[in-house]
Design a protein around this nucleic acid. Structure first.
Lengths: 125, 125
DNA sequence: GGAAGTACGTACAAATTAGTTAGTATCCCG
DNA sequence: CGGGATACTAACTAATTTGTACGTACTTCC
């Protein structure tokens, strides 16, 4: 017998609109402030910690580390630590990580493309 | 002369990885905890305030109102208040709102579809 | 008549997220 | 030899987000 997550038995299938469905939490990790940006920055390439920090421009070490650990725990990010004395750690996306990143990046690209139109109607500045 | 947003002059074109690019803030609104779920819930249909609240399951009135106002200010949500005595307000997506919702929903659907695989590799439960 | 529903606004409190500073061991650069 | 880069962690504080409770002005239902 396979072991099926409780949430699926409860309401038949994953649904982000259901408060207790794990899919909602995963979605939240992917769309969190730094999570989404990390996925965008890491899409299709490998970066080390400090390169990632510079790519995002204004993350603190603490938040970047925390975000990366979260995404790693979710199986989205792959971490390779080279055991050398000035530390060297490479971050890249796993297979599902890349899939997620493609979609998140699609959204980011859309926002960038549509920004002029959005700003025209936008009441905030 | 057209008036071009400062951020675009600064680094040529919108880029969510740039800390001060407005696209980053728009992206954050779209991917905020309740923002993303509101877009999913509202995609392709009109709902009133209380229907929306029930659809999301566990938002507080305060957060739902705040989220809707934010998305309305960004030009994503359209609000129609019927001037009747027991209040009746309809919410729907604008044209760009629908476009954004399609992408956000794409991500949500992907998470739901891939949930079994994600959960298998996931270290958190 | 009392209860519930409606779409919020407003205080206030709690929870979550984020930033700051300092520290680590070692190497490279000037 | 001092200074900076490297990848973090821990402790502490600050900022932001979120929830709770209550009020509103009426209507419908029991």
């Amino acid at each position: 017998m396979k072991d099926i997550p409780t949430a699926m038995l409860a309401d038949m299938r994953p649904n982000v609109l259901h408060p207790r469905c794990p899919s909602r939490q995963i979605l939240q990790h992917l769309t969190s402030r730094w999570g989404a940006l990390v996925l965008v920055a890491l899409a299709g390439r490998t970066l080390r910690f400090s390169e990632l920090r510079r790519a995002l421009g204004d993350v603190s070490d603490r938040m970047l580390a925390q975000t990366l650990q979260g995404l790693e725990a979710d199986g989205m990010v792959h971490r390779i630590a080279h055991e050398v004395v000035p530390p060297h750690v490479d971050y890249s996306l796993t297979e599902i990580g890349e899939e997620a990143a493609t979609l998140v990046k699609g959204l980011a690209d859309w926002v960038e493309r549509r920004l002029p139109d959005i700003l025209r109607d936008c009441k905030t500045r």
